[in-house]
Amino acid sequence: MPRKLSIRIDGQYLYASEGQTILEAAYANGKPIPALCYMKGLAAVGACRLCLVEVSGVNRLLPACTTAVQEGVSVITESEKLTRYRRIALELLLSERNHYCAVCVSNGHCELQALATRLGVVSVRYPYAYPKLSVDATHPRFVLDHNRCILCTRCVRVCSDVEGAHVWDIMSRGVNARLVCELEQAWGQAASCTSCGKCVQACPTGALAEKGLAVEEMAKRNENISQLALHRGANR
């Protein structure tokens, strides 16, 4: 049994287990810190920066998903500054690619959309990039739409760490970074793909979806994937 630690989150005294991250402790206690790249069961990468929190005694913001709890630590998960920064991060994500909710299969089931609503992002102050991106519908059952991808890499991790296939990775860098299938092959031609569909279920937006669905029909079942991942110990 891991040791119990006493911590404070937003002023509330709570218990956490040694080895837990701040985010895990917060979730266990019903504190939903915003996050997009985090998925239970997968190795945390600290990429979306939405789960940044203020930790007592540390003068910079720390990602809750990769910071372990320590005895006596006091964590602030919501403040004016955190909310402001999280809104900026969401605005940045929304302006990076082409997120048209009204025509998206994941409309109503999208984590990005849900967070934007929750944090009150009503307008985007940054110029939209409107990149010209493709849709890969070569796979018989699934479809990849780069226009909706937020590069959270949940698909990359679930494929390599849970399924063991490593079909996906990220190519190029900076703002040109993109999800890539093998050697930039069409998904339908990827020899390493087992068509297990875990990537689709792990995807927080409509970037990866099942084929043949209409607007609003793609609800993800990533809880199952998380259970499987934990079972296989993928992040340890």
Binding site: D169, M171, R173, V180, L183
Partner: peptide, 12 residues
Amino acid sequence: VPRAQIYSVATF
């Protein structure tokens, strides 16, 4: 080394 990883490196 997975093909996707090689490609990731070659383009990075």
